[in-house]
Computed example of a mutant assay.
Amino acid sequence: MTRFGYTLMTEQSGPKELVSYAVDAERIGFDFAVSSDHYSPWLVSQGHAPYAWTLLGAVAQATTTMDLATYVTSPIQRYHPAVVAQKAATLSLLSDGRFLLGLGSGENLNEHVTGEGWPPIDQRQDMLEEAATIIRELLTGELVTWEGSYFRVDSARIWDTPTEPLPIGIAVSGDKSLERFAPLADHLITTEPDAEIISKWDDLKGSTSSRKIGQIPISWGPDRDEAIERAHDQFRWFGGGWAVNSDLPTPAGFAGASQFVRKEDVAESIPCGPDLDAIVESVKSFWEAGFTDIALVQVGDALQQQFLDEAAAPLLDLLRDAAK
Rank of each mutant, 00 (worst) to 15 (best):
L184S: 13
A227H: 06
G102I: 07
T10F: 05
D154A: 15
D160I: 06
G97T: 06
G47P: 03
P271G: 04
G115A: 13
D160A: 07
L248N: 06
A231Y: 11
E130M: 10
F307H: 14
P162H: 00
V280A: 12
G102Q: 05
T73K: 02
D175H: 09
A257G: 03
L204H: 01
G148A: 12
T133K: 10
Q125G: 12
D277M: 01
Y6S: 00
I228R: 07
D275L: 11
G29Q: 11
E264T: 14
L248E: 15
D186Y: 07
G241T: 14
A289R: 01
L8N: 01
E179P: 05
K205Y: 00
E142N: 02
L315T: 00
A255R: 05
L184D: 06
D194V: 06
L43Q: 08
I121F: 13
A156G: 10
Y21Q: 06
P217H: 07
S74D: 08
T63S: 02
L68E: 01
S45W: 04
I294E: 01
G169F: 11
Y71A: 10
T163G: 15
G117N: 14
D96Q: 10
L101I: 10
R98F: 00
S269T: 09
P50C: 01
T250W: 13
Q125I: 08
Y79F: 15
S173L: 13
E26F: 05
L316N: 01
K176P: 02
E229P: 04
V23I: 07
A82H: 09
D194S: 03
R236E: 03
A323D: 09
A49M: 11
D37E: 11
E192S: 15
P41R: 10
A82D: 00
V34Y: 15
S74A: 13
P222Q: 07
A60H: 02
T190N: 02
W201K: 06
P249C: 04
K284R: 12
A322I: 06
Q234N: 09
R152A: 08
Q259K: 10
E229N: 06
S285M: 13
L43R: 09
G214C: 07
R136V: 11
G290C: 10
V72D: 09
A33S: 11
L276D: 04
K176R: 14
E107A: 15
Q61N: 09
G29N: 04
S20M: 08
E17P: 13
S199G: 05
K263N: 06
K87A: 14
W159H: 12
Q305P: 10
